[in-house]
Design a protein around this nucleic acid. Structure first.
Lengths: 239, 239, 239, 239
DNA sequence: AATGAATGAGGGTTCATTCAT
DNA sequence: AATGAATGAACCCTCATTCAT
């Protein structure tokens, strides 16, 4: 039943390579990353990479495929049969789902896609089908439900989805570009690119702000529009 | 006073090269763009490029420097001594400035920065100093003024700046990645990456939404929060 | 006395590897053949090949050694003590020996040698010593005997050996190059590289032609100069 | 009118590269020749090769195309309207044409084709169309003419063409394989692979031998069957 | 003995950069 | 100033060979 160390390593290789590739592709871009670097970061030699992926380009697609299929779209549908106000449901969807994404390696995939779609148009179709459309549909449904119940104003649903979602995506990108350049500290060579705004704080604030703009019945100023959101498991440390 | 056509062409060279470089770097990424391609698109030979820029990397920095110094930050300060409500001022800042940016080639610079900062950290400092901080300070001031006057709720200023601004940046990136892959039309091989949401419609809707969340005195539902914004010169055709 | 199947397979390994190697080296050339392909065709794994031969180059030498020592030179000496006319003897030597060679895998060895001697000069010596010189000596003797008996004209013996032998070698090469590319049939994509001349027909015709040029007493036109040659076991099907 | 040295070099490059490639491909085989070696022998750097030929494989095809179109088939047709006996015509065709080929670099092309057709089947079609078929047709016509006039016996034309031609091809191959390995001299490390038979002597002897076998009216023994052939321009020195 | 995962030197090809014209 | 031929370092990928299992 026990596998040899050799076998165990072999089984883990593809994942190790994908992880290394994701890190490097996100950091330096696909074209600027050398296949040998990916191999080295995964702890293997150049040749070994090619035992598992037939080319650097296939490796890229595998990286994207893995994270789009599972991590990003995941967890969306299972909230769909939620009960309670549309605001609460929306909060769950937005805040919780996003907290899972920012802190996970999947956050880098957004940068990868933004960066590489034009060079690899196959990726576009995949991304739209797996992420953009399901996400838009899901959040759109919640908005429409809230509007139907008189909970939300009659807004342009698509535009509102964007107002909710785009800042989150943008913060993912930021995390892997400007924010990653910045060495925080008093004597950093590079000044802080942005106030070290906590992702969680920001997302709660952002959600509250947009929700207030969305509600048909404005709430009193002192009430936190997102207060219904339970304290979540905060940001697992990233590996 | 008049220069020969030859002279004129020569004077235009650096700009033509910068334009070509911006287009290509934004489309394919810095590493995946060949110096010869840039030269060819600018209508000169490979060697000529090196008469004007000592290396591909310097060309990249020149591209970014040009657009950060001038176009992106432009139009910000001149609205600063505006009179009227904070909402109106904010609307001018956000809506008008952004409409100018999104249709200009400068919109691609955001993608370029997101993509390349980690490879060229000097860019980070420059970008933060020239764009991030002034922008944040400017919008922050307007927000703080509105709060001081009781026009806005007491919000986290930095977070609110982000709520306002990040979707705009994100749409710039989108324009140069997914949106550029998509061939719109009924029988497009690639499904529309996103609803063909007009940038102007979106930004007005977004501003309205956030502004409602921001105002201390909620306005009646039928009023358009951004109604004070005059119809602007819409989108200059992109070169 | 009986060996287990396992044992039998094991004993057969070296031969199976040699056969596979011969096929592939002849088809694609030594440098263009991968060691793994050889192993795969022999039904073993890459590693196993190296249990039997220390390197690809040694495998090549073993292939050549095997066929030069045994198959090609074979059949030569045992005809040497033949009785009868020099013409009959020559016919036996040329026609029969060659028929055996052309249909055997050994025919490919000629291509291999032509192709690889310059990269592996050790092969040259071996080939000259094992094949060229014995063959030349043998046929030369028969020619000299015929000349001495007044049966043949007084020709340049070495040149005549070549006239007899070179076309045969050449047909071996042809068989493994152009002829192997050609898909015969009415609608072949590639036109027949040569008339599908039967090797046996050709060799008989060739021998007859040269023999007539060789004989001191020209024979009548209708007589077949090679008629003494008994009908041979025709061409075993190649494996 | 005078070109710059730069321009002159550029014009000569393709030919220099083809020459270098032919030498090396013939000597070591296509797969065993490194692109850089070809470039070095042509006196340029690795990169320069790729300015003229897009890949090593295209270089191979260019090498073959050049020599098949021009040197080999050339000079054949212009003898077709020859007057005199079929034997004389045949002698011209065979002896003269071949003397031109053996001593020219084109002789190596035969080895190249034998060696590489199976890896590059496009070459087969080209070779058959440009060399095999025209050659066979040409010599076949002469033979048929001789037969019709009663000058030759009624032989199998195709087989006879082969009897005449194959030894010549074979000597070309020999020249670039075994013969090239042999360092002639008393203390050669490698024994002479074959008697240093002069190509011209051999071809005259061979033609005489086959012609005698071909003639309907056998000639007296002392007459040289090929005596009509004028002393030819002997072998131009190879470049 | 047999396997096949792993290695890393090697070779094809690209491309930033130089420089003679 | 402008060109584009030439260079060679660098990168992707292959494959002969090794060795732990």
């Amino acid at each position: 039943m026990l596998q040899s160390p050799r076998q165990r390593r072999k089984d883990a290789r593809p994942q190790e390579l994908l992880d290394a590739a994701l890190d490097l592709f996100v950091e330096k871009g696909f074209a600027a990353t050398r296949a040998e670097e990916v191999a080295a970061r995964a702890g293997v030699s150049k040749g070994t990479l090619y035992l598992y992926y037939p080319s650097k380009e296939e490796l890229l697609k595998a990286v994207i495929r893995q994270h789009l299929g599972s991590e990003i779209a995941a967890g969306a549908e299972d909230v769909a049969r939620h009960e309670g106000s549309a605001a609460q449901l929306l909060s769950e969807l937005i805040v919780q789902w996003w907290l899972a994404v920012v802190e996970s390696p999947a956050s880098g995939v957004f940068k990868l896609i933004i960066t590489e779609v034009r060079n690899f148009p196959e990726i576009a179709e995949f991304y739209v089908r797996e992420v953009v459309e399901p996400g838009q549909r899901l959040i759109g449904q919640v908005l429409r439900r809230g509007i139907a119940h008189g909970e939300f104003r009659e807004v342009d649903v698509d535009a509102t989805v964007f107002s909710l979602v785009l800042p989150m995506i943008m913060l993912c990108l930021h995390k892997h570009s400007l924010a990653a350049c910045t060495i925080t500290g008093p004597d950093a060579p590079c000044p802080p690119a942005a106030p070290p705004l906590e992702p969680e704080n920001f997302i709660r604030h952002h959600f509250d702000l947009v929700l207030r703009g969305l509600l048909a019945q404005p709430r009193a100023d002192h009430a936190d529009a997102a207060s219904a959101v339970p304290a979540t498991r905060t940001s697992r440390a990233q590996s």
